[in-house]
Computed example of a mutant assay.
Amino acid sequence: MAAQFELGSKHLENKKQANAAITEIQADNTKAVVKELINKGYGAVPSAKAAYDDYLGLTIVTEEIAKTAPEAASVLVDQILAQELAAKYGNGELNSSEIYAILCSEPGNADPKGLATKATNNGGNWHIEGKKLLRKEHLTADKYLIFAQDENQTRIFSVPEEKINVNSVTKNVAGSNVEINQVELNLDVPESACIAVVNDQLELYLTVARTLIAAVSIGIGHSAVVAGVNTAKEVRDSNKQALSGSQNVQFALSDMFAELEAARMLTYYSADAVDNNKPSIKFATMAKVQATDAASQNSIQALQLLGNLGYLANSDFADLIRLAVEGQVKGGTNRTQRSQIYQHMLANKK
């Protein structure tokens, strides 16, 4: 499998250009970074006009951006998925200059096929009622794509940001107060707001989504490995020897690197299968689980090397850990997706 992904000149150029694009950007907030990347051709489905023309190139670019700006990469993934939804289930392309956030997850439910949010047609208008959960990066959106269930099928509505009221809900979890961003929907939108009707099991969409979530996590995991290696070289123990001289530290860093490389190969394999018209939800799910677990474990291992500097709330590394762990629950928890992998094992599905 590894030999299959010795990247050719096209994909190496994709990687080089993405690195240059993110390095050139001077913006100091996620929304501004995303806007500049969109202007440079990123955040679109593969095409001759984008910065890549296949899904493997798209995956490599997403990973590269995530190494430097993981939150921006996560927002770009939503832009790509929004375009996928509009192209496959709707009436064409969305406005490529606007930032979209996909609101599918609900309190207690991340399955797009079992939604509690309801859409009712009131003779020319749609009434949408329900609750949705928001991630931090969703707050950068100009418009929200809301999944809702009518009597027979799932519909997707485009709603401007100003019509969405975000509430911060405090919940007590295991004795700790946790703030959750939540939207309570009770609004009317015109018929034209319905941009897509889902008429299948969303398998291709979920395959692309999980592959791209994996790509973001690989970028995060890479940053954790780099932080770990640099710290091991710079920090001295009580004998004034670099931590990198310790065999235990070497083993830990080697494991981090090996797990990340395994995740990368699975992710590239999944993207390449989409390019060859053989998309596999099984491989995409395995890639997502492997990559997000590797990113989370790598971040925790790097934290052990960084010590108290790693967990300060205002440090960049603290955000990296949050994003790494978030990947394990995004689009459905890894525990749920392991159950799906098991079902594929039993059925011997591709």
Rank of each mutant, 00 (worst) to 15 (best):
E6L: 12
N14P: 03
A27E: 11
K40F: 02
G41T: 11
A50F: 07
V61Q: 05
T62F: 02
E64G: 08
T68I: 00
L85H: 01
K88R: 14
N91L: 14
L94W: 08
L103S: 05
P112S: 00
G114P: 06
A119T: 06
G123I: 09
W126K: 04
G130V: 05
L134D: 08
L139H: 10
R155D: 11
F157Y: 06
S158G: 09
V166G: 15
N167D: 15
S168F: 09
T170L: 14
K171H: 14
K171I: 15
I180L: 15
I180Y: 11
V183W: 14
L187T: 08
L187H: 02
D200Y: 03
V208M: 07
V208D: 02
L212E: 02
I213H: 10
A214N: 03
G219I: 05
G221L: 04
H222M: 09
V225C: 09
A232L: 01
K233G: 06
K233I: 04
L253I: 09
F257H: 14
A262W: 07
S270N: 05
M286K: 13
S296K: 13
N298V: 10
I300H: 12
Q301P: 07
L320Y: 13
V329M: 13
K330D: 11
Q337E: 15
Q337Y: 10
R338M: 04
Q343M: 10
M345Q: 14
A347F: 09
K350F: 08
K350G: 03
